[in-house]
Structure formats: structure tokens, C-alpha cells
């Protein structure tokens, strides 16, 4: 019994070692968890077997459907934000008060010219409009038209370093997430400020949400605040997918 406990504790200690080593990982770690091993196998298989440059299906204007707004529908309102954080919430409330004129999207990390982008600045950059399907992990789907600036253009404006491997993003409802460079540079991966020909509604992530069309909806983060380019994988700790029990890669 004691022997078993010792083996268990030893195993625990070594998985803690793996957890700490996660800081310098160059690919998603599994933490010795069999489910994460399956996730990693699927991610690797997709990257190995699927053509890199395929586009998600784009639909006609008449295909646009009703769209539920779930999760956070206003980061400033504790009743509409399950992950409400007072500091972020009041910051969002102030931004909302002057219609995001003071909002800046900070782009930093493994870039040559880290800087903040204002909403007007992003809207002046060449835009892309796409009518795509939002596929929620819950099982529902919705089709909407999204207008925004390709993430690639913004990252290139900040100067991506050649060592960069991942793009992390952070939101006003206090979540963090990330994608690899292949999805980050994909032409349909956009920072959307328009939805169905109008300004992006608050409930859908104003002023800007990410669209990652080749992954499930939860990767398309709403209420963007900050983007960090990294050389190494970052699981984003308690605010990220993995430690909340969700697969980091959701191309599925």
C-alpha cells in the first residue's frame, strides 16, 4: 500500500515536472493525460494529412441564419458574464461609454514592433467579408456574415519574428486562448468588427472578435483585448482551454 502511494506520489511529482516544463514546450503538452494524448494525435494528424490552404465553406447572403449569443454577452455586466472580473469589467464599461474610441488592440510578444491598434486603424486596413458557418461545440450551428481585417495583416504590421510559432489572445471577459501560426495566418482568420453588414453587437463580442473558421466556435474569441505572439506553446493556465478540460485544438 505504502509502496503504491510512493509510486503514485512519484508519478504526481513527474507530471508536475511536465507541467512546469510546459513553459518551454514547442507543441501542446499532454500532461500524461490520455484524453490530451488523443487531442494531440488528432491535431498532429490534421496538420500532417489535411491540405494546409483549404478554405472553410463560404455561403450565400440568403443562407444567413439566426444566431444565439451564448457565454459572455456583456463583459461589464456580472449577470451576463460567467467569468466576470471587476477590473476587466469596469475597463470594458469605460470603453463602451465612448463607443470604443479608447479601445486598443495590443499586439506584442515575438514581434519586431509591438504596438496598439485602434478600432479606426483596423477598419482602415484592407478588409475581408465572409459568410461562414459558426459551429458551436454544443452541436448547433449558425451562418453569419463577418467583416474584419485578416489577423495576418495585423501580425505582419507588427512584424512577426521568424521564431514565432503560436498566437495567444486575451479577452475582456477574462479568458485566454491560442492558435498555431498555420491557423493564425489563414486568410479566413479575421478580426471581425462587422456582422451581417452592421457593427458587431455587444453580445457577439464588440468591438472585435476573432473568427477562426477551421475550428469550433469557442476558438473564435469575443471581446478581444490583447494578442501575444509566442515562440512556445502556452496553455494559458487556469484561463485557458486545457485546464478547464477542453481540447486546445478544436479543428476536431
Amino acid at each position: 500500500m505504502k509502496q503504491q502511494r510512493r509510486i503514485f506520489l512519484k508519478g504526481l511529482a513527474s507530471s508536475a515536472g511536465v507541467l512546469l516544463a510546459g513553459c518551454s514546450q514547442t507543441e501542446p503538452p499532454t500532461y500524461g493525460n490520455v484524453l490530451r494524448m488523443g487531442d494531440l494525435l488528432t491535431y498532429k494528424a490534421h496538420r500532417l494529412l489535411l491540405p494546409a490552404h483549404s478554405l472553410a465553406r463560404e455561403y450565400d447572403y440568403s443562407d444567413i441564419s439566426s444566431v444565439p449569443a451564448i457565454g459572455t454577452t456583456n463583459p461589464a455586466d456580472p449577470d451576463k458574464c460567467p467569468s466576470f472580473d471587476a477590473e476587466n469589467g469596469s475597463a470594458y464599461e469605460r470603453l463602451l461609454a465612448n463607443r470604443f474610441a479608447d479601445w486598443r488592440l495590443v499586439v506584442e510578444g515575438s514581434v519586431t514592433a509591438p504596438r496598439g491598434f485602434s478600432l479606426d486603424e483596423l477598419k482602415r486596413m484592407p478588409s475581408r467579408t465572409q459568410i461562414t458557418r459558426h459551429t458551436c461545440e454544443e452541436g448547433w450551428s449558425a451562418i453569419a456574415q463577418w467583416t474584419g481585417v485578416p489577423l495576418r495583416s495585423v501580425l505582419e504590421a507588427a512584424g512577426i519574428r521568424s521564431t514565432a510559432r503560436y498566437v495567444q489572445y486575451y479577452s475582456y471577459d477574462d479568458w485566454a486562448d491560442g492558435i498555431d501560426m498555420m491557423d493564425a495566418l489563414h486568410p479566413q482568420t479575421i478580426l471581425a468588427y462587422g456582422m451581417n453588414g452592421r457593427e458587431l453587437p455587444i453580445s457577439h463580442g464588440a468591438p472585435i472578435r476573432l473568427r477562426v473558421e477551421k475550428q469550433l466556435g469557442y476558438k473564435s474569441m469575443k471581446f478581444l483585448r490583447r494578442i501575444v505572439v509566442t515562440d512556445h506553446f502556452d496553455d494559458n493556465g487556469a484561463k485557458g482551454n486545457i485546464q478547464n478540460g477542453w481540447s486546445w485544438y478544436a479543428g476536431i
Binding site: 484524453l35 488523443g38 440568403s62 439566426s66 444566431v67 444565439p68 449569443a69 449577470d79 478540460g245
Partner: peptide, 29 residues
């Protein structure tokens, strides 16, 4: 939208029973 049939959006502001995190990873494994 101005589309016929007028697609809508509506908020869902309550938590629902969702076990898809482990369930989906296990499903693919």
C-alpha cells in the same frame, strides 16, 4: 438583417449542463 424571414439573435444568459470537454476528447480517442 434585412433578409426575408428576418434572422434574429438572442442572448442565453444562464449556464447549461455541458460535459462536452472530456466527452468530445474521449469520443475522438
Amino acid at each position: 438583417t434585412e433578409l426575408p424571414g428576418a434572422p434574429v439573435t438572442a442572448e442565453r444568459n444562464f449556464p447549461i449542463f455541458n460535459q462536452n470537454g472530456w466527452a468530445r476528447s474521449l469520443h475522438f480517442l
